[in-house]
Amino acid sequence: MHITPILAITLLLGLALPALGNERLREANFTRQVQLEQNALELKNQDVLTYLWVDVYAAAFYAAPDTRPDIAVDERLSQRLELYYFRDIKREDVIKAAWVTLERQHNNETLERLRPLVDALHQHFADIRSGDRYALAYHPDRGLTLERNGETLFNSADPLLARAYLGIWLAPNGLSDKLRDNLLASRE
């Protein structure tokens, strides 16, 4: 069998990509457990979002130890989504991607209700630098919290905002169905 250069590169990339993903997850260095209010949440799943062969960020999903990730999302239980960025991204590009996704996921009536809440959250965004760590945490009593590099920037008790904004990553038709499926997979 004759292997062309393109086939050889494709095979090498196919073999190297899982290893690169594992290396990226080690770089992200997600902790095994986080504290949210009085609840200890454990790392359920992690994955790397790759766009056009470029690793953009690693994502980790946390929920209560005895809770499946999909159940935590569906039943609005305590949860945390953490993103570790490998690339610099302009604030405007992040906001644009968020709105494109929200518009794909929600009807006009819901979007109008969300607009002032999302705009308030977006006011706390800054240009992302490689190595930045953002987190969205949800607690049923406290609502949604946005953190950047361990600092709390924003909090909202509105359950619609929490569900919609976490849904950018965790609901159908979000940024990446593959990422969503991997973050919410049951590992029993």
Rank of each mutant, 00 (worst) to 15 (best):
I9G: 03
T10L: 10
T10S: 13
L13T: 07
L15S: 04
L17D: 06
L17W: 13
L17P: 00
A19I: 08
A19L: 15
R24S: 13
R26L: 06
R26A: 12
F30C: 05
R32V: 05
Q35L: 10
L36Y: 09
E37C: 02
L41F: 03
Q46N: 06
L49C: 13
T50G: 14
T50D: 04
T50N: 15
T50C: 14
L52T: 09
W53S: 10
V54W: 10
Y57T: 04
F61R: 11
A63P: 08
A63F: 08
A64N: 08
D66S: 03
R68I: 04
R68Y: 14
D70T: 14
D70W: 09
D70K: 14
A72Y: 10
V73L: 10
V73G: 02
D74L: 13
R76C: 07
Q79R: 12
R80W: 12
L81V: 12
L81M: 09
L83Y: 11
Y84T: 04
D88G: 08
D88S: 08
I89S: 12
I89T: 09
K90Y: 11
R91V: 00
E92Y: 10
D93L: 07
K96N: 10
A97G: 00
W99F: 03
V100S: 13
V100M: 11
T101P: 09
T101G: 08
E103S: 10
E103I: 10
Q105Y: 02
H106P: 04
H106F: 07
N107A: 11
N107R: 12
N108A: 14
E109A: 02
L111E: 15
R113I: 04
R115C: 06
R115S: 12
P116N: 13
L121K: 02
H122Q: 04
H122C: 14
Q123R: 12
Q123F: 03
H124N: 12
H124T: 14
F125G: 09
A126K: 09
I128Y: 05
R129T: 07
G131E: 13
R133N: 02
R133T: 08
Y134H: 11
A135F: 08
P140F: 14
D141K: 05
R142L: 09
L144T: 01
L144G: 01
N149P: 06
G150N: 00
E151F: 05
T152V: 08
S156I: 01
A157R: 13
P159E: 10
L161F: 04
A162W: 05
R163P: 01
Y165W: 14
W169K: 07
A171I: 02
A171W: 13
N173P: 00
N173K: 14
L175C: 08
S176H: 06
D177K: 03
R180A: 01
R180L: 00
D181T: 12
N182Q: 15
N182F: 02
A185W: 14
A185G: 12
